[in-house]
């Protein structure tokens, strides 16, 4: 056996190795996104999809736009950036944590004077259960003033579109509630969905807002 032929023996395995690693690399965006959630965040950061200008109903029964452009009230016109989180008010766990994280963010924004240029939205994906009264209850529990921080619900007819646009996955849990990907979603002044933050990443969200203003 010559040395040459023994080298050729490595070719099939090497070929599979290269193809295999290449496939995994491509399938995970360069080993950056192994889960659907990280893939969603990467895709948002890179392609910045346009958010549909859905109308929401807030806790006082007023209609407002999900994106900045469709904003109804005068005060809102000046608020360029929207940070959206998705909740349902009967949620006993993560939405309550999310509420207190949002409260922290609100305090920081107020302190630094950015409080009149940002809009914090908590949007319920459970419009059947969450009427204005339930939304007001959530607002009172967390100190949402309806200006800087508003609580709203999406219309039943727009629910699927909203879930699709944000890659929101809501699944019923065993206690009659839901599990969902809790995160803060940044909509920039051009109405594009451009960043996602973990629900407790107050610092990261604040810095991103500061950067964009």
């Amino acid at each position: 056996m010559s040395a040459q032929s023994s080298i050729y023996r490595w070719f099939p395995s090497l070929g599979v190795l290269v193809l295999g690693v290449g496939t995994l690399w491509a399938a995970t965006d360069g080993f950056r996104a192994l889960t659907e959630e990280s893939a969603r965040r990467l895709q948002v950061a890179e392609s910045r999809p346009q958010v549909p200008s859905l109308l929401l109903e807030d806790m006082n029964g007023r209609i407002l736009g999900l994106t900045h452009g469709a904003f109804a009230d005068k005060a809102g016109e000046e608020r360029q950036i929207t940070l959206v989180e998705f909740i349902y008010t009967s949620c006993p766990t993560i939405c309550q944590t999310a509420g207190s994280d949002y409260a922290q963010l609100r305090d920081r924004l107020k302190q630094s004077g950015l409080g009149d240029r940002v809009r914090l939205l908590s949007v319920s994906f459970d419009p059947e259960q969450d009427g204005p009264e339930e939304l007001r209850g959530y607002a009172e529990a967390h100190g949402a003033d309806g200006v800087l921080w508003n609580i709203a619900r999406v219309g039943v007819q727009d629910l699927e579109l909203m879930k699709r646009s944000f890659g929101l996955r809501v699944i019923p849990d065993v206690w009659g509630g839901y599990e969902h990907n809790a995160a803060m979603h940044l909509i920039d002044p051009s109405g594009r969905f451009s960043a996602v933050f973990d629900i407790d990443d107050v610092e990261g969200a604040y810095r991103a807002l500061e950067e964009r203003l």
Partner: peptide, 28 residues
């Protein structure tokens, strides 16, 4: 099969298993 070829085919299975271990594609 020659052993070196059998190794390569075994590796195909290994990579396919890796792929279906990715939570992203289980979700998908």
């Amino acid at each position: 099969l020659p052993a070196y070829f059998a190794n390569a085919i075994t590796l195909v299975a290994v990579f396919a298993v890796f792929f279906w271990m990715l939570p992203r594609y289980i979700d998908a």
